[in-house]
């Protein structure tokens, strides 16, 4: 049984309803959760940057090794060197936040540029971009990262540059696809007839008006990806090195004690990884279906 109600007795003039009013509840929940995670990450980043922490994350307390959560003021307990886990969790965000942003900026800027050039210029440019995309896509990402680490040094910024560059093809093909779709619509042609310079058309009519949601979504997903790579490399020991904390190396260090019944040193960062990556992905997903799904053009 479906129920329909007309609210106003006379339907009003065209209303300019915000997008979220027509959105699916589940999508809104995704976005809400995602925004919560993003806020937490941002707040933690600031706390970490100014060292506003409950304890010094590198202060070793030999008397409190692997102390369970809640003991002696350590909210999430301590690790195998007696360092406060909560503080280390917060500081860990320093390990990926800025590098992750760099990776995102690289893939978005390069991807948008190449995608726009390919779709708008066509011809040889398009062929070149396609070759570039295929070339990058044909290398497994992890192998490329390991190569870079071997050639230079295990630095998170090098890694993130690689992550950024390998993210270019996805972004480029998304932008190019969107532009090809838009070009079939006559308004781009009409803008040319109006006499607008090409850069105005590309920047304003195409990228600003029609690609911002796409890029925001890509950025969110890219951040999730960056965190995943950073933590997995740190877990393997190629990323952030002890004693600097990272969720990846925290899980790794804590894992040795997991089967001794001391699960918290590894479980806490693992849960942090899980909820954060999930948060970014759900945010991207939710935004995608709200902004691009039903109402997008």
């Amino acid at each position: 049984m479906k129920h329909y109600v007309q609210v106003a007795s006379e339907a009003g003039e065209s209303s300019d309803r915000p997008v979220w009013k027509d959105a699916d509840t589940l999508d809104l929940a995704y976005v809400g959760y995602g925004l919560l995670i993003v806020t937490l990450v941002l707040v933690s980043y600031v706390l970490g940057a100014f060292k506003w922490l409950p304890y010094d994350p590198e202060y070793i307390r030999v008397d409190l090794l692997n102390a369970p959560p809640g003991s002696a003021g350590h909210l999430l307990g301590t690790d195998f060197l007696g360092r406060d886990i909560l503080s280390r969790l917060i500081v860990s965000i320093q390990a990926y936040f800025l590098p992750g942003l760099i990776a995102i900026v690289i893939s978005l800027v390069l991807g948008t540029g190449l995608g726009t050039a390919a779709a708008y210029r066509g011809g040889k440019v398009e062929v070149l971009v396609t070759y570039f995309n295929n070339l990058v896509d044909s290398f497994p990402r992890l192998v490329l990262i390991l190569l870079v680490i071997a050639a230079f040094k295990p630095d998170i910024y090098y890694i993130m540059v690689v992550v950024g560059v390998t993210g270019v093809p996805v972004c480029a093909s998304l932008v190019a696809g969107k532009i090809r779709f838009l070009r079939q619509k006559n308004f781009i042609e009409a803008a040319h007839v109006l006499g607008l310079p090409t850069h105005v058309i590309v920047l304003k009519h195409i990228l600003w008006h029609h690609c911002t949601p796409l890029l925001v979504i890509q950025a969110t997903l890219g951040m999730g990806e960056a965190i995943l790579i950073e933590t997995s490399l740190s877990y393997l020991g190629f990323g952030v090195q002890e004693p600097t904390p990272s969720w990846g190396n925290m899980v790794q260090a804590g894992a040795n004690y997991f089967f001794q019944g001391k699960f918290w040193p590894s479980t806490a960062p693992a849960l942090a990884i899980l909820s954060t990556i999930l948060g970014f992905h759900l945010l991207g997903d939710g935004l995608n279906s709200i902004l691009e799904g039903k109402r997008g053009t």
Partner: peptide, 22 residues
């Protein structure tokens, strides 16, 4: 480009002149 201020086109497609987000 300057010549475009003197000649214009009305497209068959009603939506042509209108960027849907503007």
């Amino acid at each position: 480009r300057p010549l475009r201020s003197q000649m214009q086109m009305i497209f068959q497609d009603l939506d042509a002149a209108l960027n849907p987000k503007m």
